[in-house]
Write a protein that binds this DNA or RNA. Structure first.
Length: 251
DNA sequence: CGCCAGGCAACAC
DNA sequence: GTGTTGCATGGC
């Protein structure tokens, strides 16, 4: 199997995932109730770019639902802004992002991230995009978070390697999951088209499949009838209910 | 109750 | 460079 074979298979099964969610715009601008924009692209405005970057930090080591809760608390308290976060006492910030776990660490990371954004050069409605090494120099931004920010916030393709990626590429035999981050990333990037849309969609599909089926304890049970079974569709989670094809014979 | 969830820095060797 | 540990909440 080739890298793109898995991509096309996942796309058939789950359909376009809609880049990275912007909970602040859920239900608006063509976004769904969680803030995803299927078939969309990166935000062109500074607020959207910053919100995705904050989300990438908040979701470190934690489920998106918990990160989303913290993100909404920042939003409700008018703290989804680099200036406001940079000037906020760490204890206040920590109490706001409490649902995301590791809240003291993440408060500091958000302050560092905000300082970095305050130094970015505005460029039209957005920013001049930072380099990958610039992002990696920020305390709290490691390789995965940097690649999420580059790909999903700025639309600059840099393939995201996370635990789901390692697991799914490992189980399908596409890669050795124990390889170091940079080796895996360059291997994937050599095998797929150099397109922001493909990078963003591929990783989003990997996350979707990782959450729904290819978990630590995988659910490899195929259900060929899912697409035409009303009981199955009505009783399953929203992600699965949106599936338009059966999920058999994958991984 | 135990396990897991879209990591990272700091440190040991 | 590889391996381990602390950080901490919420869902199942």
């Amino acid at each position: 199997m080739h890298w793109m074979d898995l991509y096309h298979r996942l796309l058939e099964i789950y359909g376009p995932r809609g880049w990275w969610p912007l909970p602040s715009r859920a239900g608006r601008d063509g976004r769904d109730e969680r803030g995803y924009l299927p078939g969309g692209g990166p935000p062109s405005d500074r607020a959207g770019i910053f919100e995705i970057s904050v989300g990438a930090v908040l979701t470190q080591g934690i489920s998106w639902t918990n990160a989303e809760r913290a993100l909404l608390r920042l939003l409700e308290n008018d703290f989804l802004d680099p200036r406001r976060i940079a000037d906020c006492p760490p204890e206040t910030l920590a109490s706001l992002v409490r649902p995301a776990g590791y809240y003291n660490v993440k408060a500091r990371k958000l302050i560092e991230l905000s300082g970095f954004f305050l130094g970015l050069r505005p460029d039209g409605p957005g920013f001049r995009a930072p380099g990958r090494t610039d992002l990696l120099r920020v305390w709290g931004i490691g390789p995965e978070t940097a690649d999420c920010i580059l790909t999903y916030a700025f639309g600059i393709p840099s393939f995201v390697i996370d635990e789901y990626t390692r697991r799914i590429f490992g189980r399908t035999g596409l890669a050795d999951p124990k390889e170091p981050y940079e080796k895996l990333r360059t291997a994937v990037e050599r095998g797929i088209p150099d397109s922001p849309a493909v990078y963003a969609e591929y990783h989003a599909l990997i996350v979707e499949h990782g959450k729904l089926r290819c978990r630590t304890r995988p659910d490899c049970r195929p259900c060929p009838l899912l697409s035409c079974c009303e009981y199955g569709l009505s009783s399953l989670s929203y992600e699965t209910a949106r599936t338009k094809h059966d999920t058999s014979s994958l991984v």
